[in-house]
């Protein structure tokens, strides 16, 4: 049983209920194949970075799950047949990915990143204070990793 992460982009013309129903088909197929759904996330309507099938928006849905490895090939076929799905991607999570996904679920990722980003922007401002900046940011990063 591997950990996988699935992103589905549904057609924007679907209503909330319809999109939920469409996703449920896939989550059910995972549980039917003795898979376990670890996490589900609905991002809702989002602007696409480039048009897909002449659509500029899409309904994003993220599912993290554990499943036997032969399930994905079957799901691939249903994705391709489903007209509501305009894009899908399944990625296997490695051990670091599993770690990261768990932290993300607990809301720890945003905080740490904010601290790091604040530091990354800081040094370019004043080269003279850079040493002091780095030292303080190091302390910050340590705190974040402890939390």
């Amino acid at each position: 049983m591997n950990h996988y992460e699935l992103i589905v982009i549904l057609s924007p013309v679907l209503s909330d209920e319809e999109s939920k129903k469409a996703i449920k088909v896939y989550t059910d197929s995972i549980t039917e194949a003795q898979g376990v759904i670890v996490h589900e996330e609905a991002w809702g309507m989002r602007q696409l970075a480039y048009p897909i099938q002449k659509k500029t928006t899409g309904i994003y849905h993220l599912v993290q799950y554990q499943a036997p490895s032969d399930l994905n090939a079957q799901m691939e076929i249903t994705f391709r047949r489903d007209d509501n799905v305009i894009r899908h991607m399944i990625t296997r999570l490695d051990k670091y990915g599993i770690d990261y996904a768990e932290k993300r679920r607990n809301g720890e990722i945003g905080k740490k990143k904010a601290a790091i980003e604040a530091e990354m922007d800081a040094p370019s401002a004043t080269p003279a204070d850079a040493a002091a900046d780095v030292a303080s940011a190091d302390a910050k990063a340590e705190k974040a990793s402890e939390a």
Binding site: I7, A49, L62, T91, D94, Y96, G97, D99, Y100, R104, I109, K113, I116, E117, M120, P123, P127, A130, A141, S145
Partner: peptide
């Protein structure tokens, strides 16, 4: 003005997994 030393931010902060779901971060 001396060029500042380059360093790998991923190694410095021990980031082991780069998330593709965060486009704002990847834009760097």
């Amino acid at each position: 003005s001396r060029r500042r030393d380059k360093y790998c931010r991923f190694e410095k902060y021990g980031i082991k997994y780069v998330d593709y779901k965060d486009p704002e971060f990847l834009k760097r």
